[in-house]
Design a binder for these strands. Sequence first.
RNA 1: GUCCUCGUAGUUCAACGGAUAGAACAAGCGUUUCCUAAAUGCUGGAUACAGGUUCGAUUCCUGUCGGGGACACCA
Length: 583
Amino acid sequence: MFRAVLTDRLQAAFTAAGISLPEGFTPNVVIAADTRFGNYQSNAAMILSKQLKLNPRALAQQIVDKLEVTDLCEKISIDGPGFLNFTLGTAALIQRLSLIVQDDHAGVPPVSKPKRIVIDFSAPNIAKPMHVGHIRSTFIGDALARVARFIGHTVITDNHVGDWGTQFGMIIHGWKTQLDQAKLKQDPIHALVSVYKAVNAEAKADESVLTLCKNELVKLQQGDAENLAIWKECVRLTLEQLEKVYGTLDVKFDHYLGESFYNDALAPLVADMVDKGIATISEGATAIFSDGSVPPENDPFLIRDKDEWKAAPCIIRKTDGGFLYATTDLATIDYRVKEWNADEIWYVVGAPQQLHFRQVFAAAQRRGINTKMVHIVFGSILGPDGKMFKTRSGETVGLLEVIEEAIERARAAAEEKEQGFSDADKNEIARIVGGGSVKYAELSQNRLTDYKFSWDKMLSLQGNTAPYLLNAYVRTRSIFRKLEGAVELTPELAITEPAERALAMKLAQFAENAHDVLDDHRPNLLANYLYELANTYHGFYEACNVLRAEGIVRNTRLTLCEATSRVLKTGLGLLGIQTTERM
RNA sequence: GUCCUCGUAGUUCAACGGAUAGAACAAGCGUUUCCUAAAUGCUGGAUACAGGUUCGAUUCCUGUCGGGGACACCA
């Protein structure tokens, strides 16, 4: 990575110039946003000049005098208030380009300290279809897992399915009284959903039905054989359907340890926490309160009411003895730490659950767990009214529906092309383009912002979308197909045209971008990078004909195409988007 | 009420404290004897408001206004 090398060189230059760096200060080098000034830049001189009370430009000059980067840069300049601007030399770019074409990681170096990271994402509920709300967790989680693995971490993905809870009282009651067996065979999840909805309506109108449901739930929790069998069948049928959806989306999990997996751990966990004084009995329930170890404004167990701080406890056992969401999550943390030796646990879960995780993480810490736990927050998908899509009240759009529609639209687009595709070709292209479009629509966006669900936006095939990137890839492949037969790319390269240089420069930045994604868990940085790369490639493609060129020019351009091809395929792969040779 | 989060072009979104705030869609006019036109060139338009910190603020801090969310026995 040029950035890392330049950072090291800069550090050495400070030492050589006899400037002692303040504690914890490392010179900052970034990819220049505006290539007019150079390719990389640093603001280190400006920041240090403040602390050392020196003139920033003079300080910059001192550093430049000692800087040894002639192997990398053809130009270093001091601009504006004291920016250090580096312009890479052609030889360094060429070397980099050769590496991308040879390396199976497209020139992305591994992390220096690999970790064991457990990533918790997707987490659909049993007996309910996945809806558009699951898009964010599933795609963001999957992309982060892929990137983390790619740069050398050990990743364990776990789908913490909602397979246990009060809804099973109603489902079991409905299963026994009104289940349509034929429908269950045909479309199990929808059969279960309609049963659930019908019972829910009945229970609202008739108290006695609600009581029956509660009784079924109690029996299930006590291990009644018949209810247990029904529950297991519900889980099996739902997982079977989910696997199909995940298969279409190319999303895989290492584990499916749902909430029920932790049932036996809950009572001992609560007892232990009471023993240790972390949890106390209050109003009949068992709850965790503030221990006063952090300032009240940072304490997740306190809220301010007027001028006083009031308790905001986290309940782990209900008055009736039942356990809750937080209890299961605490047990889950125990398991992940003890059984999987997790260094870090990442939760890709929506913003509404921020308080929940703050409380659970704080509770786990009090139990002596010092594993790093991160809630990777994302904004909500809103309905046309600007309010959250609700699972319980309003109808939402099914995830499968969105994917199918996307594939259909991509298929229609493929149909219009005159590339002599067979039906099988068209189906495969439609699957990749359609599925990729939905993923890219999500992943190209900052995860924190809410957005309104829109069919046209999610399924668009024009503009900054997956097909745009795929088309760039297809263009690279088409060139190699035209060559008919193996091409030997030779190491003799010469970058002369601005479009060639711009492309080589962009390709070199893949290494930095792949790493930056995990700094703040933001796949959209990678998506944006790939868009810029595709854009740069399209520009190169218009400006520089490859096949009609000869000799070293042709070899250089072919190498640029090969490198672009590799980076696009690898980068899209990190987003969970497959590529196609033709479209 | 308290806390969290968001507020950027007509719309949907970008921008690890950096230089002239980028794209896409929508609109208009062009580009195919040339490697896939799902491409490409050109033309307008935006940081909610008020302070503060800084050489420099869309970004950090404070307040106001506005959207959304969470706040003891649902998950």
